[in-house]
Design a protein around this nucleic acid. Structure first.
Lengths: 250, 250
DNA sequence: CCAAATCATATGTCAGACGTTTAATTGTCT
DNA sequence: AGACAATTAAACGTCTGACATATGATTTGG
């Protein structure tokens, strides 16, 4: 692709796009070394700092990695599922926090996706996945657990359920949805009673997974979804009431 | 966050992380203007090019936007669903192409997710969404359509189905899964007969959506998933056979 | 009072330089 | 000859300083 110095778009953005397109098209295979910064600056007829800005853009997307030293340079990076998880979580988190996405909408999406892979999880789960789910459910029943630890364990439980489906693409997709919800979930202060109920749901899910009962797993997830949304609604209502109280007393 | 000049990590990466964390934590609200590059370079005690590399990293993730001129600068960007779509599609596409994800795995994930939002789509679809689905199905029945146009229309059809659920978070999640499949789908050369069958499936889906029959929609999607995977398997088998033929004649 | 010219500010780009990391080469000693 | 040490070269990481350009604000002229 050609670079247009008169374009209103930054040169570094144009160069980044050109290289990115080459990577996506497969012209630049994984682990291929790009020309050195000096060579790139000559090829694109721009200065080295401009080339560097372009490379940093690509590095931010995990499309390339750089190595220093004699045989160093920029290499096309094999995008791992882990890299993709991280980006997805960052993006999803910001998307939810910046766009006033209601708890209801996010929650609905999350449980819809989770229910989508539950049948597969029930069918394919390994002993390891089941053990993780049991362990997290057990941890959640401990009395001394902080809210943060409870939420983290909650994420781990659902993560195990999703991973049990044995489909990395599904795991990747779900990671964002589940993890991005955590800040919103943390807003809900879990009382002892609601924890108890959630743990009961988790145990029921683990039972269904253990017994290979896909329909039961789906039903429990549906119940858990409803319960979570009700819980959120009551918390929100209580908060609004408190706010009204405060504004009245002013 | 403090910047460590002796860290093995690039200064620009450290600075980008510091700013990114501030954005995620909400310390820097949407549309807030960051200090100018000169000011940042003073605050972090680095040179302006280093600051610029950090800002380009953030710009690549759509976390900030920059404006030139007197009142210009870098502003915290409101991450739109559209921005997020784009990133998701790029990431998903690369993930599939770089990690030898089997067609089967990708396909399974895609249809599992799509079936997750079908019940909601059936329940909430607007006349507009249904009309789009009908129009695309009709277009797909045209005889002169190229393979590329057919695939694009296929994506548009399923996109409409997903959007009909009226949940932007779901749409965002699904966009990656559906669009990233297109290059893989294009590998399958659709014969006239398989097109006919796919169009029939699409019409059945549209019927189910129109009639508010969630179970039927789910069943048709399951059938479509099976059919697509069978189709792919036969294409792959044929290709392998041709390859063996070629290697025998060598 | 409005319009045009000017100014100030901030980003975009460039040129050149130096430091640091790293691997390959060279050289020397045993 | 072989092994270890010193040198070299390539490449990225960073800095300084400068100029170009865009754009809102200010001033000036009619």
């Amino acid at each position: 692709m050609k670079i247009d110095p008169d374009s209103p778009i930054d040169l570094s953005a144009q160069i980044a796009k050109a290289i990115r397109d080459a990577i996506i098209a497969g012209t630049l295979p994984v682990d291929e070394r790009l020309p050195s910064e000096a060579e790139l600056s000559e090829q694109f007829d721009v200065s080295r700092p401009t080339v560097r800005e372009a490379l940093k853009r690509l590095a931010a997307q995990s499309l390339i990695r750089t190595q220093r030293g004699a045989t160093g340079g920029a290499f096309v990076n094999r995008l791992t599922f882990e890299d993709a998880y991280g980006q997805q979580i960052t993006t999803s988190t910001l998307l939810l926090s910046m766009n006033a996405v209601s708890f209801q909408t996010a929650c609905e999406a999350r449980y819809a996706l989770e229910r989508a892979c539950a049948p597969l999880s029930v069918q394919r789960r390994s002993a390891d996945h089941l053990a993780t789910m049991r362990a997290e459910a057990h941890r959640q029943a401990q009395p001394g657990l902080t809210d943060e630890a409870f939420c983290a364990s909650d994420v781990a439980f659902h993560r195990a359920l999703v991973d049990a489906a044995g489909n990395p693409v599904l795991s990747y997709q779900l990671a964002g949805a589940v993890e991005a919800m955590q800040p919103l979930m943390n807003m809900i202060t879990f009382t002892a009673r609601s924890r108890e109920k959630i743990v009961a749901f988790h145990n029921q899910i683990a039972d269904a997974v253990e017994n290979g009962n896909g329909a039961a797993a789906d039903a429990v997830l549906a119940d858990l979804a409803s319960y979570t949304m009700e819980l959120a609604q009551s918390v929100i209502a209580a908060r609004d009431a408190a706010k009204n109280e405060a504004s009245h007393s002013n």
